[in-house]
Design a protein around this nucleic acid. Structure first.
Lengths: 156, 156
DNA sequence: ATCCTAATTTTGGTTTACTCAAAACAAGTG
DNA sequence: CACTTGTTTTGAGTAAACCAAAATTAGGAT
């Protein structure tokens, strides 16, 4: 990935979607870009830092509008509240840390989209497949390893 | 008690897990078996039909205990509240109707567990993969088709 | 069979994430 | 610049789920 990525002009994003360009929207968009996979509350906190008057409801409103406009993607891993990311038309997936709930992107499993073909679909017309991987993130692995080494005799 | 119906002996399930056999637990187990993929509230309703004194809190307690004991599996599709099913050690997946939220089981995608191998996992140690398919269930397809066919007014 | 203790359930209050609605306000069109 | 409509604020409300203390009960011990 590039370090100098010019954000696809948030203003145009909004306008092209037929949405008005407002300060809260730009702030939310920026906040999501800076911290992908954030929930409404932490985005609210981030937005407030730059735009103190903003209400939490405004953030919910913005997130709802941008999500239905297809500018943001909303994911809801079990046990987490809704998280938002700038969607990249690609159908990518996620890993969630079972311990700290951290989320990272995962490219679609087998290149294309093999996941889109269940064996028997009970008559459902499948529109999308969503894959969530669960595991321990590097940090929690380290913490778990350290704890184990400290309490019990080293497993080495 | 009833002598003539042999189900996977709920009593043994509980005892083997080191859990006490109580009326609420048996009732919840039965209710989940009858209506898989139910949420706490509808299980509560079902349980109350047979065991009127039961509290919602008890149902939450039972669900929690049975889930950590591995007797029930808890799933949380986006936009639905937590749903419960009797787990079958198999790692099966689910289809959720985008319209009515109905859920059905789907056998693991490509036979074994191909889904367990993401390309790049950001250093996470993957423990499990969860696949959720989204689509229109037969009933909602029919309803959508009918509405479309009746060109003018959506018969609601 | 009865007692005892830890597990379970009840009761009641609390939290978190999110929605709804009316009124104030501001973006963008003409 | 004014107007219209979309957006945000303000304030209240809801549903799902959790927490804690007290009452109860299952099941092993006596």
């Amino acid at each position: 990935m590039t370090s100098t990525h010019i954000s696809p002009a948030p203003r145009e994003l909004l306008r092209d979607a037929g949405l008005k360009v407002t300060a809260p929207r730009l702030a939310v968009l920026l906040a999501v870009e800076r911290a992908p996979h954030s929930d409404a509350d932490s985005l609210f906190a981030a937005v407030r830092r730059e735009l103190p008057g903003t209400s939490l409801q405004a953030v919910y409103g913005v997130l709802g509008a941008l999500t239905t406009a297809g500018i943001l993607r909303r994911i809801e891993p079990a046990t987490s509240s809704a998280l938002y990311e700038r969607r990249i038309g690609d159908n990518h997936h996620h890993v969630v840390c079972t311990s700290c709930k951290a989320v990272e992107d995962i490219d679609c499993v087998h290149g294309a989209a093999p996941c889109l073909a269940p064996s028997a679909s009970h008559g459902f017309v499948i529109e999308a497949a969503e894959v969530t991987f669960w595991g321990l993130c590097p940090r929690c692995q380290a913490r778990a390893g350290a704890a184990r080494a400290a309490s019990a005799p080293p497993v080495r």
